[in-house]
Design a protein around this nucleic acid. Structure first.
Lengths: 202, 202, 202, 202
DNA sequence: CATGAATGAGAGTTCATTCAT
DNA sequence: TATGAATGAACTCTCATTCAT
């Protein structure tokens, strides 16, 4: 394996970022195994050789992209938490914001989520990134609840369920589109579960 | 594509079944794209040519395996429903049985679930199999509830959430093994949500 | 290579003949390399194993078929020679009959000729069969001419040209179908050449 | 099918040409179906991957080679026509030159002709290349004759016969080598036919 | 004798990675 | 640094041939 360099020149940094951005985009759109490094290079507007200057292999591009993508998904949620920590917002409104924000962000990276799930299942490195992110969000919500003077029993486990259900919901809304389901009802039912998870009176 | 034959002789049927069983096993364990047809043949104890007598291509083996695997996951659940339809079982006990059965079955096919999720995301054929199975289970639960004289509001959407959460739970228990979580607490919290989904008083 | 048996039972002889007939037919129609032994077996209504009882390999079927096919093409010509040896037929009429008969026969085995030419070029065994046949026809024409009291100078070489041109003509008429050519004119021009080859007064 | 690139660098152009030259050579020598892409690569001194950079598949190499080969066969003939258009050459001498040139060229590409005929019979693409070439030569001869003030009846059909017989002759001389024939006699007889075709007084 | 399931070497083709320019 | 032509191992799939039944 050729030595991987870290770019220092401004133009080089931009090049690396371009590869991550465009590379992750096309990898997610077409699926990791259906995209060649030549495709990535062409799509990012660089040469194949250039890719191997900044990345050890094809997977590394995906991993870098995944990290950024997850941050982009998580940060809006974290922002919601922060935004409403000081304000006089009800828990009900909070849950609504979280769901809305989650859908909004997943919509921005439709295919990304599919491919992320795929890779997550098969690749330990990606799995760890996921875990790490979940922990961060979990902590943030707990802080939020404490500030709101909610003392939650079994908070860690409930937060996990909370995140999982938020994720399931937005995933279902965006992709599956089961024709049999009424998504406004699904929304209400999901909200009820989330609320009870936060309120602790299940 | 060479014609695909359906085996009639007993030994041939066994051979086809062996390819599905062993093939699906190794495909799930190592990931679809990390296993060659030669690997599958060797692992199943047949020749590569033999594989192409009964399957049009590599994916066909996975699809056949996936169908059986999903049946194996779903049937135990359906059995639970049937088993307790006539008996004097409480809803609480019912939910416990469902969770236990779900974990038991997923344990039998650890890696399968990971690879299934992967492929499900990327392949429409697998997606449809999943959808079909969910519908079947949904109907079965509804029948069960009717026999128990529960009339459920928003039943379809709740059933979807029910199945999803059961699946999340057993998946989490088996794979993620987040060290931070207390799985007996997770179990209790999950049960509470499931119960409320069935009772309708959320 | 398993021993090849010569069939003795009547049904077996019929089976071998069926394989040659049907096998050669499909080999010519689709091209030697585009037909598998399984195709041949199915088309001839026998098992693949059966083929290897009477033929050492796939090529052997083609060779046997080619021999018969060439006989079928040559014999009608030879018949023409014989038929008109005793009768009071003019050389002009004779040439017409030869051309007509040649076309008629090639029409009966359209694709055969194409595939024969292909194989002839690449395979010495087929080449020899061709040479042998040409010699036979050559001799026959000479005999015919002697009976008609034509003593021909350079007869062997002229006969070769004769056969070649007859073959070219019928091949052109049947396959090429160049839209630019008027085939009745081609017929007349060809006849003139052939006549002069026989008459010796070129 | 991976995209096919057109080489621009001098070394790459040479590489592509090498593949055509050497590839066509070995394909003709051993027969299209008896040569693998690995054989071609090895014989041309490149990697298998390199072949697929410049050619969509194995057949494409053959087609490119065939085009060049046919040009090499036809151009010397066309040159003969041009060369003697202005000069005070007799038709008799002209025919001699054509036959000599045809043999000379076919000798340079012995096996090519065999394989070309094979493929021509089975592949429409090659057939078309052949037809195209024949038309070109036909036109050229007609032009030649007009300049010599020969007005030929049935010129198209006669030109077709002319080309066919030239081809037959040189093919026979080079390959068949029937021991029974005296090739100097064959030469004289062929010349007579060709002359009469041009002179129109058959 | 007949069968056709099984074999496995070998086919054409792809693509992550390298390296001379 | 940047390039993209070149590499060749590895892939999926085919089919002439064999052999247990």
């Amino acid at each position: 394996m050729t030595e991987v360099r870290e770019p220092v020149k401004k133009t080089s940094i931009e090049k690396k970022e371009k590869i991550i951005e465009k590379g992750f985009e096309i990898l997610c759109e077409k699926g990791f195994h259906n995209v060649s490094t030549i495709d990535i290079a062409r799509y990012a507007g660089v040469s194949t050789g250039c890719i191997y200057q900044y990345f050890s292999d094809k997977k590394a591009i995906f991993v870098e992209g995944a990290k950024i993508c997850l941050k982009n998904i998580c940060f809006p949620l974290l922002e919601v938490f922060e935004k409403y920590q000081e304000k006089d917002i009800t828990i009900e409104e909070f849950v609504s914001r979280v769901l809305e924000e989650s859908i909004k962000k997943q919509n921005l990276s439709r295919n990304a989520h599919q491919e992320l799930m795929s890779m997550c299942c098969l690749d330990e490195e990606i799995q760890n990134i996921f875990s790490q992110m979940e922990l961060e969000v979990t902590k943030e919500i707990e802080t939020f609840l404490q500030k709101k003077h909610f003392s939650l029993k079994n908070s860690k486990e409930r937060m996990h369920l909370f995140i999982q259900i938020v994720d399931d919901y937005s995933h279902e809304v965006i992709y599956h589109q089961h024709v049999e389901y009424d998504y406004s009802i699904m929304y209400e039912e999901t909200k009820k579960i989330l609320l009870h998870l936060l309120k602790g009176d299940l």
